[in-house]
Design a protein around this nucleic acid. Structure first.
Length: 878
RNA sequence: GCCGGGGUGGCGGAAUUGGCAGACGCGGUGGCCUUAGAAGCCACCGUCCGGAAGGACGUGCAGGUUCGAGUCCUGUCCCCGGCACCA
């Protein structure tokens, strides 16, 4: 029988499970290696081919490290709280718990069919009461440490949908779904004080082996800026001071007006009677706009004068106070001093409203545009003649001395809005007492589980789904005996993923989230692989929780994830054409156009022949007909050529590849190998069916290397003992060294190409030796574990190849006795010479000068200079 | 606009960091095997000139440094990702 993955793969998957081959335990006598995938949300659609890319990479590393003698922790679990299951529940009434269980089973089946070496005894599910308990326990810890608090926060509320929406779900002040109006409404929310950790979250990035772009995104998100706070007294209101934050205190003499955010607490009070009307209208309009909408029309500066005036603490000058929505309430002090000469936004605003512009730093033409660079201070009293950095120091000292300002650091990072008006999440482990206080539940009251509901919609009048469970919300506090209310919100999906990597260390502990012994042994995560889309959310939130746990003495490392790698996306080919059925009328008989007859004009696509607007239509890959030369055609409209577009896989494009089908057709080993061979792990690459056929052929070749398919009963070939010819031994040694190095660098694609070379050449001149065959299988086993196990077994080994030690290369075989050197004349390759590997420069030079083509090109001239690069080449300049 | 990353054959991608550009795979062409197909195996495939030997050109574009540049420097164009009134 030829290589048949369908026969061998399920057998080995069952073997690994049954023998618990990959189970691991704390073992202080051995070095540990913790390799982790970002655990998935088990969606109803199941796995797509993008998931296994990262999982395959970590699996290869896990298997390799085990063979290198490491005690490897390689777990998998489910980030199972989340919105899709809840939306499904609203539609069908099916409890999210049922949906989640079904989806988890499907994900697990798909993941196991790929032969990953997870320790399944450590599987965790964030919705499991035994997990929720400890998530709630950690929330209580945060609360005890003063890091969780309730606050009135403006949220996006959509009355028509009866729910609160995330910023991303609001577009131009309307709901993304249905286009209903959205208002900003203050609601009482749980907040986490992540800002208290801003400095450490920033500083500790330096020690992490993470992709630089991710670190940069986190730095930008935290957004540290250094400058000064300055207080301006409000004229006519003694004791009232507007505090502003600026990174350019040196430009204080150029401040020609102040601007408050429309939400600033002073607005109401300081506005003069004659300006009241205009100010109120502006504030209301700003409140209606979502933050996103405010950013959308950022170009046009709007604002109104409050009529109030402030005194510049330095110059004593009287300047107007305006409000404008280009000043954000949530950043700094919610107020700025405007220096139009040296800030682009202030410049634009000053031009729009005819406010004065005063140059205080030399270097530009401030009547034309703001000069934001450093320069020499002018018109600034005590600062005149100073360069910007020195001017900053001088003025800050002056402000501190006069007590009207001080050095200050501000962060863009805001506290984390931690409650969601949803059902399918962790309930808050606390009671609201009649006196307004909050009592956190004790250990013996945890976990607090969700009540069962029949209707999962938000409650009437802006309430949360949990408010439908009145006898769950209204309860009695067993401690005080008084009536108390449970919190109607749940935690966001990020909560469970903030600490799951710690639970994996000790997943069944029922006395603590994890034991100190397990944490001390397994942490930190040595390699963490996942998508870059979590750059700031999950990866920042979990770093925050980790630092809190560190301060509480529960973990011993400052950071959870030592090394992070982002896998690239696997792209799909989609096929499109165009038609003029813009309204998607199902009855219409539209005119259709291939892409070659369409031109894109800004936002619109126009048919070239009749100038009418057309809309893209996508044909699912499986329906496309391929003509000669692989030209894609529409399935039913004859002669309509489709355009191939390579892009992210998505249902709407019909270009999603299902791993189940790939495994059924080619086998898990081919799928694993293909996803690793397609290119570097970090890079996006298109899926190709021809490509997978290529790696499948390689596995067939590997099979035939060991199995004699020609002979009756297809026995294992006769493999001579020993290591074969010197050439074979050298090839094997080179492959060991190369594959090992590539694995250390996570360069899976080049490792596979080296294995292909070995399979192609190793039995060319002489029969394959037993040593070479066994070494090859060991090197192949992390990539194609099923095939490797099967052949290893047929070679007569009773124990799993996964438990074999990794081969090491004989260093003496890595250096050849004779080597080929290229010989260049004036930098152009003209000939080559074979010399002893240890030949000295003089010998090499002589041989190079004697090479026939070199002699020809020198045409009798004496070489001016000869450069010998040992082991590489000789360049003759003549 | 700002900040990252990147432009190498028909395609995915290699190239030990300044030393033989195009490994490996896909795709293509020709051949072997076969009753035939499939599969498999072998050879060739950057472009141009040439029957060949060989030569010229060649890593987005234009310069530069160097004995030698895909790799370093300057300028420039394009693509992908992130951020976008954060004072």
């Amino acid at each position: 029988m030829p290589y048949d993955p369908r026969a061998i793969e399920p057998r080995w998957q069952a073997y690994w499970l049954e023998h618990e081959t990959f189970r691991c335990e704390v073992d202080s006598t051995r070095p540990k290696y913790y390799v982790l995938d970002m655990f998935p949300y088990p969606s109803g659609d199941g796995l797509h081919v993008g998931h296994p890319e990262g999982y395959t990479a970590t699996d290869i590393v896990a298997r390799y490290k085990r063979m290198r003698g490491f005690n490897v922790l390689h777990p998998m679990g489910w980030d199972a709280f989340g919105l899709p299951a809840e939306q499904y529940a609203i539609k069908t009434g099916t409890h999210p718990r049922i949906t989640t269980r079904r989806n988890v089973e499907n994900f697990k089946r798909q993941i196991q069919a790929l032969g990953f070496s997870y320790d399944w005894s450590r599987e965790i599910d964030t919705t499991d009461p035994s997990y929720v308990r400890w998530t709630q326990w950690i929330f209580r810890l945060l609360h005890e440490r003063g890091l969780a608090y309730e606050a009135e926060v403006a949220v996006n509320y959509c009355p028509a949908l009866g729910t609160v929406l995330a910023n991303e779900e609001v577009i131009d002040g309307k709901s993304e779904i249905g286009g209903h109006p959205v208002v900003r409404l203050p609601m009482k929310q749980w907040m986490l004080r992540i800002t208290a950790y801003a400095e450490r979250l920033l500083a500790d990035l330096d020690e992490l082996d993470w992709p630089e772009p991710i670190k940069k995104q986190q730095r930008d998100w935290i957004g540290k800026s250094e400058g000064a706070r300055v207080r301006f007294s409000v004229e006519g209101r003694p004791g009232r001071e507007v505090e502003v934050f600026t990174t350019r205190p040196d430009t204080l003499f150029g401040a020609t007006y102040l601007v408050l955010a429309p939400e600033h607490p002073f607005v109401e009070e300081i506005t003069t009677p004659e300006r009241r009307e205009a100010v109120r209208a502006y504030v209301e309009a700003a409140a209606r706009k979502s933050e996103r909408a405010r950013m959308a029309d950022a170009r046009e500066k709007t604002g109104v004068d409050t009529g109030a005036r402030a005194t510049n603490p330095c110059s004593g000058e009287s300047i107007p106070i305006w409000i404008a929505d280009y000043v954000l309430a949530g950043y700094g002090t919610g107020a700025i001093m405007a220096v139009p000469a040296h800030d682009e936004r202030d410049h634009a605003f000053a031009l729009a409203f005819g406010l004065s512009i005063r140059e205080v730093v030399k270097g530009g033409d401030v009547s034309r545009e703001a000069f934001t660079g450093d320069g020499i201070a002018v018109g600034s009293g005590i600062l005149d003649g100073l360069a910007t950095p020195e001017a900053k120091r001088r003025i800050t000292a002056w402000l501190e001395e006069k007590r009207c300002g001080e050095r200050a650091v501000t962060y863009k990072l805001r506290d984390w809005l931690f409650s969601r008006q949803r059902y399918w999440g962790e309930p808050f482990p606390l009671l609201h007492e009649p006196d307004g206080s909050v009592r956190l539940l004790r250990d013996d009251e945890l976990p607090l589980l969700l009540p069962d509901l029949d209707d999962f919609r938000p409650a009437e009048g802006g309430g949360t789904p949990l408010e439908r469970a009145t006898d769950w919300i209204e309860t009695t506090d067993p401690v005080t005996g008084a009536r108390a209310r449970r919190d109607p919100n749940v935690m966001p999906q990020w909560a469970g993923s903030c600490w799951y990597y710690l639970r994996f260390c000790d997943p069944t502990n029922d006395r603590a989230p994890f034991s100190p012994e397990a944490e001390r042994y397994w942490m930190p995560v040595d390699l963490y692989v996942g998508g870059a889309e979590h750059a700031v959310l999950h990866l920042l939130y979990s770093r925050f929780w980790h630092k809190v746990l560190y301060d509480a003495g529960l973990v011993h490392t400052k950071e959870p994830f030592s090394k992070l790698v982002n896998q690239g996306m696997i792209l799909g080919s989609s096929y499109r054409y165009w038609d003029d059925n813009l309204s998607d009328d199902p009855e219409a008989k539209p005119r259709v156009h291939p892409t070659t007859d369409v031109r894109i004009d800004g936002e619109h696509a126009i048919a070239i022949d009749d100038g009418r607007e057309v809309k893209a239509r996508w044909v699912p890959v499986k329906d496309v007909r391929f003509g000669p030369e692989k030209t894609p055609f529409h399935p039913t409209i004859d002669g309509l050529v489709l355009e191939e577009v390579v892009e992210k896989m998505s249902k709407s494009r019909g270009n999603v590849i299902n791993p189940d089908e790939v495994v059924a057709h080619w086998g898990a080993d081919s799928m694993r190998l293909y996803e690793m061979f397609i290119g570097p792990l970090e890079k996006a690459a298109p899926w190709s069916t021809e490509g997978i056929a290529g790696v499948h052929r390689f596995l067939q070749r590997a099979w035939r290397l060991v199995i004699d398919e020609e002979a009756p009963d297809e026995p294992v070939r006769e493999l001579p003992t020993g290591s074969g010819t010197p050439e074979q031994a050298r090839l094997v040694a080179r492959t060991i060294a190369g594959v090992t190095e590539d694995l250390e660098n996570l360069a899976f694609n080049t490792a596979i190409s080296k294995l292909m070379v070995l399979a192609r050449d190793v039995a060319k001149e002489a029969p394959l030796s037993r040593d070479a065959a066994e070494t090859f299988l060991k090197l192949l086993s992390p990539f194609a574990p099923h095939l490797a196990e099967e052949l290893w077994n047929r070679l007569g080994h009773a124990q799993s190849i996964a438990l074999e030690p990794w081969p090491s290369a004989d260093p003496t075989l890595l250096v050849a006795d004779t080597i080929t050197l290229a010989v260049q004349v004036n930098g152009k390759r003209r000939d080559e010479i074979r010399v002893a590997a240890d030949a000295d420069a003089a010998t090499v030079e002589a041989a190079a000068l004697a090479a026939p083509n070199v002699v020809r090109h020198l045409e009798g001239r004496a070489p001016k200079k000869v450069i010998v690069v040992p082991g590489r080449l000789v360049n003759i300049v003549g």
